[in-house]
Design a protein around this nucleic acid. Structure first.
Lengths: 360, 360
DNA sequence: GGGTACATTGGGAGCGCTCCCATCACCATG
DNA sequence: CATGGTGATGGGAGCGCTCCCAATGTACCC
């Protein structure tokens, strides 16, 4: 009897089991399970006895067994398409992680980090998800064409996106107000009297880039000016891209006196092109970036930039997913019965903020 | 019979099981298990039949069940003490992750990312680990006093550190050659004719900071000079710390004409102090940092810095852990029978490299 | 031809837990 | 005092897999 058990496992001390706790406390397995899981249907006396036994034995429930029996895994995956290095740029990654960590700290959910760098790995993850090896998925930094969200939806895997793929994204998401942020940036430029405001866009297959461009145009129109196509150059969210785009801009419209870049990294590239062309910042050309990353603070002059609430985004995403999974009771005191409609609770857009530094 | 089963799980489609595959292929469970796990003790005919059934049914083994039965989890944790924001600084985090991802891609291990920001969370993780909820642990960015490694060792949880806590670290680790990198940096300064070379150290409770300081001293001694205490100022790996330290240095030794900073971020702080003091870089004062981070590239002038092989470190760490877990067969063709001793295989120090830019 | 050795295979037992149902004790009624 | 309810409790069944042993089949030897 015992022999069969001892033959296994190669020496791992297996820690006390539910059964042992039950025996110790002189109750049944079911009762211990109830106590451990906080069910109300246990008498105080019994609960105390069980809790004592748990403490004495140092019992920690075996997640794996729990997952198997309950059919849930108590884990969510954060999926990062890694070719998309944008994600790793400060402060995006750490911010998201920080927020997700915050939200998860309350629960005993685990975070699985999944890097998806190529087709094969995507395939593997899809399979993994469809086999329900996690309870839910957080997806960030998606391209418009990414099929993963739909794929997940298809197999009934709850997912929350960081950012959207398009204006009418159906999958739950948390996004920043990219349009508003860009508009604010360009309005700021205009308000400071800049006459010819150009923009360097991000990869246009990403909705986020489209939004920032839209914000740029919207600000212009709001000021009664017609956006000019020659003042729009396309980057790809890389420094090199920003550099190249700035050169194009300078050639097309030498009279430029302000540039809104859809990311700080591209602004850094643009800065270099500007320096090469002998333009001073901000005297000759004012510069604004997006992301409020470390790069922005360290540029010379420090870069005015649009800050997104990234930590908040991560927190929000995880919170939303938890809600979707029914793993979270509505925060106490909230969930007002009155009609304070918070908009669509599964499609949130968080406000951005302009951080002014020396580049304007 | 079926009723009991249907009553569960709230609608998740549970995917085919081993049992179903077995039935489909007309074999027993054991045989399917063998095929799936690549055991050699299966006839070719049977294997083919099983593989066909697997393909037809789209069978994916249930990891959770497997973990429970086999007593292993097929997951490792990457533990990040988050107050230590150094870890999140570019490019450290993404590099480690990249490397770890590389190593893990070969296997079907999963990566659990665990943020440990406070005592409570540390406690939780310790418990978690001691309950063997992961097979192994990767630890980065440790302070000298961190008890986690010993704790893990105590409960038999394999662990690999990124960096060491002290010179005689016993737990397996992968570290960069901090001493050598710092020495190379300072030698470079000396070779360029700098006379008074100061240093800004990192938090001295971290071994990495001690090493870089040691490298600084070693280079000085190697050039026949005695290190002076007044030329050593302590930072804490933050920009503010670097700023403050540089001011101290300037006050103590106005004649300084070169500074080696134990991190790029601190160098950025030092740069600001230098600018405030009206010193030009590199004309008046040459500056070298450590980490080769994004900050270095974007400083003005771009910062000469010591690059660590971070991706390699991550890859190495994960590889070592996998080895420790016996999850990896020795790379084909390697593991030569001849005595090419690679040193201690569990204590690796990777070489660093000086990246020259405009700050010297 | 009988026996031994070996390769292959099927399936029982069990991993630690949750779910659920039968049971039990106890109380308030009729 | 019997009856029906109620909350608390014990424990069987089962989650999908691995491990292992016994059973079967096959080849080879004396």
């Amino acid at each position: 009897m015992a022999a069969a058990r001892d033959g296994r496992g190669g020496g791992r001390r297996p820690g006390p089991t539910l059964e042992q706790v039950a025996r110790r406390a002189g109750v049944g397995r079911g009762t211990v399970s109830r106590v451990v899981n906080g069910s109300p249907r246990v008498s105080d006396r019994t609960r105390a006895a069980v809790e004592a036994a748990v403490a004495e034995l140092g019992y920690v429930p075996n997640r794996v067994a729990r997952a198997l029996a309950a059919g849930s895994t108590d884990a969510i995956a954060l999926v990062v398409p890694e070719p998309e290095t944008r994600f790793f740029a400060e402060p995006y990654f750490s911010g998201i992680l920080h927020g997700v960590g915050d939200a998860l700290a309350e629960t005993d959910m685990q975070l699985l980090l999944t890097l998806v760098r190529n087709e094969r790995e995507r395939e593997r993850f899809a399979q993994y998800a469809s086999a329900h090896r996690v309870d839910g998925v957080l997806l960030v930094s998606l391209h418009a064409a990414d099929p993963l969200p739909d794929l997940l939806e298809e197999c009934g895997m709850p997912a929350v996106l960081g950012g959207r793929r398009s204006a009418d994204e159906s999958v739950p998401y948390v996004d920043s107000d990219n349009v508003g942020g860009a508009r604010a940036a360009v309005e700021h430029l205009l308000a400071r009297g800049r006459a010819t405001v150009a923009t360097v866009t991000g990869s246009t297959d990403m909705y986020v880039a489209q939004c920032r461009l839209e914000g740029y145009r919207s600000a212009l129109r709001g000021a009664g000016r017609e956006p000019e196509e020659r003042l729009v150059a396309h980057g790809d969210f890389t420094e090199e891209g920003g550099h190249a785009a700035m050169r194009v801009l300078l050639e097309r419209a030498p009279g430029i006196d302000a540039v809104f870049c859809a990311s700080d990294v591209m602004a850094a590239g643009a800065r270099i092109a500007l320096r090469e062309a002998g333009r001073r910042v901000p005297d000759d050309v004012a510069l604004i970036g997006f992301d409020d990353s470390a790069v922005a603070r360290h540029m010379d002059p420090p870069l005015t930039s649009v800050r997104q609430p990234i930590v908040e985004t991560g927190r929000e995403m995880a919170g939303m997913l938890l809600e979707l999974l029914g793993k979270t009771e509505p925060p106490p005191g909230a969930e007002g019965a009155d009609g304070t409609a918070d908009g669509d609770p599964l499609h949130r857009v968080l406000p951005t903020e302009l951080v002014c530094r020396g580049s304007v």
